[in-house]
């Protein structure tokens, strides 16, 4: 996945069972963002792999004032890339469970 300057990681162990999972997002390189992020804290949140989309969360982060509207795509892509990796890994490790 291309480096967007926004890092998204698992905030808990993934055992492949739960559909909702804790993720942690922070800005690694603010120069890659169009707008100025509110502060460079790590934002932890729960994401439902089956029911939600990265764009939902990205929009909520903008509504909450963490990011500027012009960074919606970058934030959504950063979350999407991590979610894709989580799903890919689940397929590999627990194929029957998916």
């Amino acid at each position: 996945a291309e480096d967007t300057g926004v890092r998204v990681e698992l905030a808990e162990e993934d055992h492949g069972r739960k559909s909702s999972i804790a993720l942690r997002l922070w800005v690694e390189d603010p120069k890659k963002l169009k707008g100025k992020p509110k502060d460079n804290g790590a934002i932890e949140f729960t994401f439902d792999l089956e029911k939600e989309t990265p764009d939902d969360v990205a929009q909520e982060m903008i509504d909450s004032g963490f990011f500027h509207e012009s960074d919606l795509k970058i934030v959504a892509k950063s979350i999407r890339d991590r979610v894709a990796l989580i799903l890919w890994r689940r397929e590999r490790i627990w194929p029957r469970m998916q």
Binding site: D29, N40, G41, T46, E60, D63, F66
Partner: peptide, 27 residues
């Protein structure tokens, strides 16, 4: 504590904590 919590109108909670220095790229 240095954790702050923001709850979005759709109900999702965002918990903000400091990023460990080691995880921030050199500015």
């Amino acid at each position: 504590s240095s954790f702050t919590q923001v709850v979005h109108s759709a109900g999702r909670r965002f918990i903000v904590s400091p990023v460990p220095e080691s995880r921030l790229k050199e500015q």
